[in-house]
Amino acid sequence: MAPPRNRRPGFSRRAQYGLFLGYVGVIGGALIAAALLLLSTYNPGAFAPVRSAIGEVTTPLSSGLAWMWNGVSGVPQGIGSYFGVRSENARLKKQVVEEARAVARARLLDRENQRLRTLLKLRDVTTDAVITARLVNSSSSSTRRYATLNAGGWQGVQHGQPVREADGLIGQVIEAGPNSARVLLITDPESIVPVRRVRDGLPGIASGRGDGLLDIRSASSATMLFQPGDAFVTSGTGGVFPPDVPVGRVVRASRNSAVAAPNANPDSLDFAIVQRTFLPEPAPSPTPTPGAKPKAP
């Protein structure tokens, strides 16, 4: 039969010894504390070594307990810091993305601003400019390459006039309405532009390929050896395109022909300049009226 829980310690010798040792420990501790108190009061010099020895014994224990307490007390702060760092990291990532977009927009606006300034400067020095108009669209996905201007006959745009921008020639007006005009781009297969090579002046013919590039062939009986990087400008032959307007640069050469990239890309343009034809058609000579007699001298 198990002993009851409220059994007195007198029935157990082990319990009696434990209780006795507890009393002895309490009384001994009190006596030691009293002795140390008296020693520190009446003989501080003798108490100093004792205090040092007690400090040497209790310092590691105190340090360990302090380290454990700091670790336990810092757990909530660490958890809060973790979630705070995550939210701050997400905010900074979002800010970096927004700043990258702002920088991209600023660069795009800066390039557009520089291009418009160049176009305005070109318009100021060009004496044959008719109007600066916006390129509404261009057919870059088709083999036929056209563009539309938001200016027409009411603004002075006429059939046959060349269209250009600051970087080079774009095309030629083939239809002119009251407020719009259709432009045949130089990359269209039906486009033919007389050109000359910049480094030696040899004449050539630039025609469109329908894929955004140009075919350049020699316009003389002499064999023209093309080299990558050769630049071509309008020659003025034919009286339509004014001379020295940049047309293209050779990107792939062969013996009798070359493939060139146009200087001006209408797919990335907003505005263009319409110019008068280089040599306008001569006015028809007046026909004599039937029956008119010449004046006597």
Rank of each mutant, 00 (worst) to 15 (best):
R107L: 12
R145K: 15
Q227E: 11
H159S: 03
W154V: 04
M1G: 12
T277D: 00
L109Y: 11
S40A: 15
T41S: 02
A283M: 09
A90H: 12
N263T: 06
Q275A: 00
W154Q: 11
I174D: 05
Y82W: 09
V75P: 13
R5C: 09
V157Y: 03
G80A: 08
P3N: 05
L21S: 12
N137H: 04
D211I: 07
K295M: 10
P286W: 05
V130P: 14
V274A: 00
T237K: 09
V259A: 00
A90Q: 11
A102T: 12
G28P: 01
D124S: 07
T127I: 10
R249F: 04
L36Q: 13
A102E: 15
R217N: 10
Q155L: 05
D215R: 15
T118Q: 10
K293C: 00
P189M: 11
L37G: 13
L61G: 11
P290Q: 13
D110F: 03
I216W: 02
L19D: 06
Q114H: 10
L135Y: 03
T223Y: 06
G10K: 06
A206W: 00
R51S: 15
P290E: 12
A34K: 04
S285A: 06
T41A: 11
G248W: 06
V163L: 02
S285N: 06
I54P: 00
V136M: 05
W67D: 15
E175A: 05
S62F: 08
V233F: 07
V50P: 01
A272S: 03
P203M: 05
G18Y: 14
A292K: 12
T118S: 14
P189E: 01
